[in-house]
Design a binder for these strands. Structure first.
Lengths: 338, 338
DNA sequence: TTGAAAGCGGTACCAG
DNA sequence: CTGGTACCGCTTTCAA
């Protein structure tokens, strides 16, 4: 079904048909009706590709994330999508699963879409990709990678603040043996998080630390906890790089007969909705995902004078204390004895 | 950056440039190199819209879901996306949040994309939309709505089987007061699920039942459980329409000092990954989301003779017993006393 | 092996 | 108020 067929049936030119379909108010009521009639009879739906090509405009936004299975990323996407839908935009997501190759493919595909804006929320960013993106005439928002530049907005999270607050809190509770559970240590931003933890621990006298890394999922968390318990480190507190993994860590702890937080305290990061619902609920650092979605949307659709889009936005996570943390149990826990 | 600019820089025609970029093996190695060189220098990325319009082909699949925040839908999407990525396709999702208006917009937008296939996994489907979709020359897969027709594959879940098995199991455990927690009772498929529960209960002598409805989220589950506890029904078992809500139900029960499953048994539905990780883990009915993603993908890309695509696929959920269910506590539970 | 040119399905400007 | 028409950027014959 094409515009031409609709026009023919309504006995008008494609120009007029186009006007009617785009609500350009100059068409007589009579022809207008004929066109609408024809369009609906033919169940006509304009071809987005032709429309975009010809019009030069594009109402779609893009977003690339590392793991859409992790509610953290999903929430940002949903927030952006809601705003987009309310304002007549659409958003297409691409998931990379932390795979640099998929990221490259995603970036190329996104550039090819000639989007109204692209949000890049990934951990596996490589410098040359940032260059490639920066070279495009495309509004971009980077989350946690890259630096602000022309047409590039940067959202930076003071990740270390959340870690500090967490460690500090656990320290005040008497914890002296802490473990960090992360994932994808090979990727810069993630390795940096682990380093941040270690660095922070260095500021507290008499604290011993270790780290484990697995995959970004509850299952990965479970596996990490398993390794931790197999080793002889016996932490009294486990800090997880995010809530998603913390859920798995807690599960494994309980399966091994350890109580949380009586025997071991656990913290997450992100404050996903689930953090409040799991048992025990998670002590975590809040990252305002909804607000991030808004910032992204505004960066793309805001009407500030061109160029002012170049900015950096800082987010400082707050600690949210819930049930998964408590006083250290220095008596040591007897593994296997609940 | 356009093909023409690349062609110019490489001193060839756009036709040749196009050939090189599409790996059409007839170009001499020398010119081939020049074109590639030029393309990379200019950081050229083909315009997907122009490409699709001109080529008449489309490697993108569409998917419409009711609530991408619910892991059930998300898993199907991810499964489809993985397969797509592996085979050079892309998939665009649209979320409706159970809102019929957003569904209409999504359907229109999807049709306008001239997709290689569209999967519709929603609960708010209206007949006329099915007509509209069926009228398009577009391979479609409906999940739980519509009926098979030309170019339409239908995936139907024997929802009632899962409910029967759940009720039967709880009955054998001595439960005689059961409640059903659902959402969006105004939508056909969802109302039907509630009705299925009630109908099933009818097959078991001496069982009393009630239903509550809230929103599709842990938070909705919590609220539903709250209502249930406020009423004087005092169920010994709560069957939730899905795992996502069950998580909230369990949380509320515990907050009210009730133990699961000692005081109240809870079941979910879907068997999302989380079901295994929450505490207590969920007794639920398994729906093979990964397989559904595969079925969808194959329906769109399979090379069966045209027309054979018209089929109906039946899925019969199996009960998965975990920790959230146990023998009925007929002594009655003292609310507020753990 | 390469180029010219005809579309693909619309939009928007220019006349009438 | 309506029609003619020149593109948008790329793919794909058809000839050379």
């Amino acid at each position: 079904m094409t515009l031409e067929e609709v026009a023919k049936r309504a006995r008008v030119s494609t120009a007029t048909a186009s006007r009617v379909l785009n609500n350009i108010d100059v068409v007589s009521e009579a022809t207008r009706k004929r066109v609408l009639q024809a369009a609906s009879e033919l169940r006509y739906h304009p071809n987005v590709y032709a429309r975009t090509l010809a019009g030069g405009k594009n109402r779609t936004l893009g977003m690339i994330v590392s793991n859409i299975g992790n509610p953290f990323f999903l929430d940002i996407f949903r927030s952006l999508e809601d705003l987009a839908a309310q304002n007549g935009y659409e958003v297409v997501v691409e998931n990379t699963d932390y795979d640099p190759e998929r990221l490259v493919a995603a970036v190329r595909s996104m550039i090819g879409r000639r989007l109204a804006g692209l949000a890049v929320v990934v951990s596996e960013m490589e410098p040359y990709l940032i260059e490639e993106l920066a070279a495009q005439a495309l509004p971009i928002v980077f989350y946690d990678v890259g630096r602000p530049a022309h047409n590039i907005t940067n959202i930076r999270v003071r990740y270390e603040k959340g870690v500090q607050r967490g460690v500090e809190y656990l320290y005040s509770l008497g914890h002296r043996r802490m473990a960090f559970v992360g994932h994808h240590a090979a990727l810069g931003p993630l390795r940096e998080r682990e380093a941040t933890f270690l660095r922070t621990i260095g500021d507290f006298a008499g604290v011993e630390a270790t780290t484990v890394t697995s995959s970004d999922s509850p299952s990965g968390g479970r596996q990490a906890a398993h390794e931790l318990l197999e080793s002889n480190f016996a932490p009294t507190a486990i800090l997880c790089v995010n809530d998603f993994m913390a859920i798995g860590v807690i599960r494994e702890l309980r399966d091994q007969g350890l109580r949380v937080p009586e025997d071991v305290s656990v913290t997450g990061y992100d404050n996903i909705d689930l953090a409040e619902f799991v048992v025990p609920s998670l002590t975590t650092a809040n990252i305002p995902r909804r607000r991030i979605g808004q910032i992204v949307f505004e960066a793309f659709t805001g009407k500030e004078p061109r160029g002012s889009a170049e900015q950096e936005i800082l987010i400082v996570p707050e600690l949210v204390v819930r049930e998964s943390t408590g006083p250290a149990n220095h008596g040591g826990h007897a593994k296997g004895v609940a």
